[in-house]
Design a protein around this nucleic acid. Structure first.
Lengths: 189, 189
DNA sequence: GTCTATAGGTGGATAGAC
DNA sequence: GTCTATCCACCTATAGAC
């Protein structure tokens, strides 16, 4: 994820800051110090912090969707795909980060509307993809669940986001892995 | 929850603010405006914001433990107790709040050490209580699970915290209820 | 595109009168 | 206990030179 473009480098640094400290937990000064430029320069690329935040979620969402598309291209059974979905979260967590949108969900009440909408769009897309995998798995006898695929998808996202948050607080990734494995095991046919 | 004591009233207001906006999302000015006093007065009761935060979690933890003791006094089966445990979360959510400690878990990286410790203590106590209920339920054939009670307790807490956060962002408490019901249904013997 | 300089506001916190 | 007044650091953001 090495960027040459300054805008992308700013987003890289901001992304790491939001995922660790939250949108209200960092400032332009933090980015400027890391990047080695002045605060004023940042405003050339992102006029306001709200702009920066919105563009950040947009990029994160696209990158996440690309990862989901990559899972689909890789083929494999529905349980396999779910394991690779969980692996994305683990990778983020092992970098001591939270899911960007999980973090923003906590700060929801303080976010400007465009950021809220972009955040919900992220979860909607995740729900869509997961629902597809779940339905496919159920149809092929690879997965079993009693509720609507949509509701199972929502419950799964919630479990992963919550487990991620607690695991990060305890500095113990195995807390996440245990919760995630249990969630997947319960879907086994 | 009506307090006459000024310190308690300050904590009441701060609690609502943290549960909706986060610890980094409010200021002494917000409390002062709501309470109708000056910022300086607040510093008489809580010298620093870190003090305020720590005392806030202490009180919240005690109140939560009292609620768990109340569930125990009420008797009933393990599934019954778990339903009443979930009901605590629902009540908080219907007031458009997050769990105080779930909120702080997101901001973990920016919190002073005393607040971190107090927050983890809250989750440890929840884990202890839940583990007890789970073990009791398993021993009496009311609940069934494959993993250690401790790990099931952790997974359950993570699910509830995550579902709460997403449900609040979507302004849809039913999202939480569906996830919680699914989590409890999977423990049914 | 990046800089210096600065505006205008808000943050937490303190001193000292009442 | 609460007030007024104030401090200083930091915040987001802008103007204008280079």
């Amino acid at each position: 994820m090495i960027s040459v473009d300054t805008s992308q480098r700013i987003l890289d640094i901001a992304e790491q800051l939001v995922q660790t400290r939250g949108f209200n937990g960092f400032s332009y000064a933090d980015i400027a110090a890391t990047l080695g430029v002045t605060k004023a320069s940042l405003h050339y690329h992102f006029p306001s912090k709200a702009d920066l935040g919105q563009r950040l979620i947009e990029r994160y969402g696209k990158s996440f969707l690309a990862a989901l598309a990559s899972i689909d291209r890789g083929g494999g059974s529905a349980p396999d795909r779910l394991r690779r979905y969980v692996a994305i979260y683990i990778e983020v967590l092992c970098d001591d980060r939270m899911c960007l949108c999980g973090m923003l969900a906590a700060e929801f009440a303080t976010l400007p509307s465009p950021m809220r909408d972009e955040m919900m769009h992220f979860f909607d897309e995740n729900e869509r993809w997961l629902s597809g995998v779940l339905e496919h798995g159920a149809a092929h006898g690879e997965l079993r669940f009693a509720e609507r695929a949509r509701d199972v998808a929502r419950a799964l996202m919630a479990s992963l986001e919550g487990a991620m948050m607690l695991a990060r607080s305890y500095g113990d990734a195995s807390r996440f892995e245990l919760a995630a494995n249990r969630a997947l095991a319960q879907l086994a046919a």
